[in-house]
């Protein structure tokens, strides 16, 4: 099933008289259960694409179909619903809410999803336990390490069990040990829970965790190929064509 399909996606940033074309007609299809890495030099348009996929930003032209639905036609509240239920977004800079405990941060998507308080708390604690922070849930973001922050952010992204996980350079601010741990969490999500996972990275080691690597240059996809893992998984034999 095609969860994500973009056609001729363009994004132009305008700053006064200066126009920057960040995406120059991108075409891309991602199926449910794929584990994809997006690579490319800095400034090649990776984050711009991720923001559009995450319904945080709107393209200048072209179409984005999420689960077959044209996102450009959706109202504000429907976009909020998608961000709340369908997509879990993980940022390079963690984006935890300051002066708010790990637990409260993880509860937040469930607050906006109107989950009852007890249920919310129970689930948040179990999510934090899953990422290895069961004993730290009362800590504030400034009291934990970068790797721990990113785990809280991942737990938060998973709060409402979204089928799609988008992560924009999730290991960009982490040391290599933490990076591997984070990638293991993503791998587990993809392999054992069936999540569609798309991560942006510019480290080939990180990309090696995934099945498929898409490479960007100057707002275009220049390469789209399977990794060793991808070939070995046999996944793409079933999907046919790719």
């Amino acid at each position: 099933m095609e969860v994500i399909k973009v056609c001729n996606l363009e994004k132009i940033y305008k700053n006064g008289n200066i126009e920057v074309k960040a995406l120059k007609g991108v075409n891309l299809t991602i199926h449910q259960g794929e584990f994809v890495a997006i690579m490319g030099a800095s400034g090649s348009g990776k984050s711009t694409l991720m923001n559009v996929l995450g319904c945080l930003d709107k393209p200048s032209s072209g179409n984005y179909y999420l689960d077959g639905e044209d996102v450009s036609r959706l109202r504000d509240d429907e976009l909020s619903y998608i961000r709340n239920r369908k997509i879990g977004f993980v940022f390079q800079s963690f984006n935890l809410i300051p002066r708010t405990s790990a637990l409260k941060n993880v509860e937040l998507p469930m607050v906006y999803g109107r989950t009852a308080k007890q249920e919310r708390r129970k689930r948040a604690i179990s999510l934090l336990t899953d990422v290895g922070l069961g004993d730290r849930y009362n800590h504030m973001p400034n009291e934990i390490s970068g790797g721990q922050k990113q785990r809280v952010a991942i737990a938060r992204a998973l709060a409402n069990e979204p089928p799609i996980i988008l992560a924009d350079e999730p290991t960009g601010n982490l040391d290599s040990k933490s990076s591997v741990e984070i990638m293991e969490i993503f791998t587990d999500l993809n392999r054992n829970r069936g999540n569609t996972v798309i991560i942006v990275t510019h480290e080939p080691d990180i990309a090696e965790f995934t099945d498929r690597v898409i490479t960007f240059r100057d707002g275009n996809i220049i390469k789209d190929e399977l990794t060793g893992r991808g070939v070995a998984s046999g996944f793409y034999g079933e999907v046919s064509g790719k």
Binding site: D77, S80, R83, F89, N95, L96, I97, P98, L108, G113
Partner: peptide, 16 residues
């Protein structure tokens, strides 16, 4: 502002 952005990215509606 940034906190508001985070909240929106997590699904907060305009009304919220």
């Amino acid at each position: 502002t940034r906190e508001i952005g985070i909240r929106k990215s997590l699904g907060a509606r305009t009304k919220d």
